[in-house]
Design a protein around this nucleic acid. Structure first.
Length: 514
RNA sequence: GCUCCUGUGGUGUAGUCCGGCUAAGCAUACUGCCCUCUCAAGGCAGUGAUCCCGGGUUCAAAUCCCGGCGGGAGCACCA
């Protein structure tokens, strides 16, 4: 080796070329598209699942999870199951089941099957009994605090010592005699484990709240760890994905399946998706809605899918964005600007161009003879033209007007060029030509006689340093063209020289991005 | 506190498993030019990373080993 290294690089190269040409062939390092390959994935056999709890409206975090689930299923010609993880009747509501489906629909995430974990209660009970029967679990009647202290001190409680018959009897009593909070089924893990989730975790508990689907049929409910493990296994899931904070629960997941002799899916985790200053948690959002600081779960400042939609973000952009984040565990600040960039490229060719004026200043053109002009709705795409009436009196934005001095030339976009003749509270000018003239300022305008006033709602960052941003919603008054009135709600508009907005109602648009 | 995860330009990632092909690709942001009756989209070019730090192994390390440090998460009868 050192012998080889002692000769020059070029000499090494020619030596190689002569003796071992095949070593020099550079393997094509093809640019990977989309998600990284899945370990142990066989084409046609991959089954993934998206398991939301129907306890709220879907948000960007759900989008990331479901898109990853779907993309992997697609990548391997497999299937995606939508499974509502509805095992806590205190939280679930029927409207959320629906809202989640609506969200997925909008995102374009297609699943091959829908099911509810709560439909498998009998099976879940059977598995619980099997665990009890084999003494892998026991019923604990200790106080919550006692359990917690014992966990911290790595001490088993007295219930752990109870024999099988005691556990079976207690289990039977859980369905009627015990009150909520008086008994739980615990997995016999390892109270000395360094992983605290293994210290005899809860598997099932009593909840007397009626379930949105099953009403009062059940009152013993499995908790997350127990339900996911069994559901994933029986649903035939080959690859299960969840966010990073569940990582410590993998040991439990596999151990439960192990004790039950059930097939084990592969569990992988990815980092959560959350935007800076735009929390996703119910804990953060609920008070805002309740106190009326935001208008609802579709307030454009929020990271809910509904809000993103109203704001003018399209599902294709969300998908591209999620894929650009790839499948990693590193926690990062998600770049909202990247989402906007993807979005802009997608909506640009479909966004109608209109003029908008803020803080209007009157502009009077003395020698106007025009009465109407046709303006194309898009510079490249054929999106038709609109007729705009003209009578020589206009509004232009103060920002543009402020720069004008007598003698300046300026082009009223799509119309004509004028020279400023007087600047007072109004601006006066005269036409000096109609042909496009490069090199002079160009401004958009609105005819005074048919200006339509609208509100531009501009969502800003919701939280600054964990504090609610009182200025998170700016509302600007503006004037636009009458053609605006003919557009449907939901239309994406690019206001020339201003930015993209989505028509939200007859007199209101929401600012999408620059 | 304990345990686990994580650390590549301003930002997000590729490459890390199987050390040399790349002193690091792409996207985004930024700058400039071109195009354009927009400060958009499109085209081109550019700025920007000693791959968290320190040791070690090796002819060769972002990539392997050891030790630090920073960031995040979990420690619920919630998912």
């Amino acid at each position: 080796m050192s012998e080889v290294n002692s000769i020059s690089i070029s000499a090494q190269k020619s030596e190689l070329e002569n003796s071992y040409p095949d070593l020099l062939v550079i393997k094509p390092k093809q640019e990977r598209e989309g998600l990284p390959p899945l370990e142990g994935a066989e084409y046609g056999k991959v089954i993934t699942r998206f398991p939301p709890e129907p306890n709220g409206y879907p948000h960007i975090g759900h989008a990331k999870a479901s898109i990853i689930d779907e993309e992997y299923a697609k990548m391997y010609g497999g299937k995606l199951i939508l499974r509502f993880d509805d095992t806590n009747p205190e939280n679930e509501r029927l409207e959320y089941y629906a809202a989640i489906k609506v969200g997925l629909d909008w995102l374009g995430v297609k699943y091959d099957r829908v099911k509810n974990t709560s439909d498998d209660m009998e099976l879940l009970y059977k598995k619980a009994e099997e665990l009890l029967e084999n003494e892998y679990a026991y019923v604990c009647t200790c106080e919550k605090e006692t359990i917690s202290i014992n966990r911290r001190e790595m001490r088993p409680c007295k219930c752990n010592a109870g024999d099988k018959s005691q556990n079976i009897k207690r289990w039977e009593n859980m369905s009627k005699k015990y009150k909520q909070g008086e008994a739980i089924v615990r997995f016999r893990g390892d109270m000395h484990s360094e992983n605290t989730v293994m210290r005899d975790p809860t598997l099932l508990r009593i909840i007397d709240e009626p379930h949105p689907i099953h009403k009062d049929k059940y009152r013993i409910w499995p908790n997350y760890d127990f339900a996911v493990a069994i559901e994933d296994s029986i649903d035939g899931i080959t690859h299960a994905f969840r966010t990073k904070e569940y990582e410590l629960r993998n040991e439990l997941y596999y151990t439960i399946l192990d004790k039950l002799n059930m097939r084990k899916p592969r569990m992988l985790e990815f980092s959560r998706l959350e935007f800076e200053g735009m929390p996703v948690s119910k804990r953060a959002l609920k008070p805002l809605v309740q106190d009326g600081r935001v208008s609802g779960y579709d307030d454009p400042r929020l990271p809910t899918l509904e809000a993103l939609r109203r704001r003018g973000i399209v599902p294709e952009a969300i998908r591209k964005f999620v894929l650009s984040l790839s499948f990693t565990k590193s926690d990062t600040f998600a770049p909202f600007e990247t989402l906007e960039s993807f979005n802009r490229k997608i909506i640009d060719p479909a966004s109608i161009r209109l003029f908008i004026v803020f803080d209007p200043v009157k502009l009077l053109v003395s020698n106007n003879t025009m009465t109407e002009i046709e303006i194309p709705n898009h510079p490249q795409k054929d999106m038709g033209k609109r007729k705009v009436r003209v009578d020589g009196t206009f509004y232009i934005s103060r920002q543009d007007a402020e720069n004008l001095k007598v003698g300046d030339e300026v082009r009223l976009l799509e119309l004509y060029n004028i020279r400023i003749t007087k600047v007072s509270s109004d601006i006066h000018g005269e036409i000096i030509g109609t042909d496009y003239k490069a090199g002079i300022p160009k401004v958009q305008w609105i005819s005074t006689n048919n200006a339509v006033s609208i509100e531009v709602v501009i969502p800003k960052i919701l939280f600054v340093n964990d504090e609610f941003n009182e200025n998170s919603l700016e509302i600007k008054q503006a004037l636009t063209e009458p053609y605006y009135l003919e557009l449907n709600v939901g239309t994406e508009i690019q206001f020339v020289r201003y930015g993209y907005c989505r028509k939200d109602s007859a007199n209101q648009v929401i600012y999408t991005h620059k």
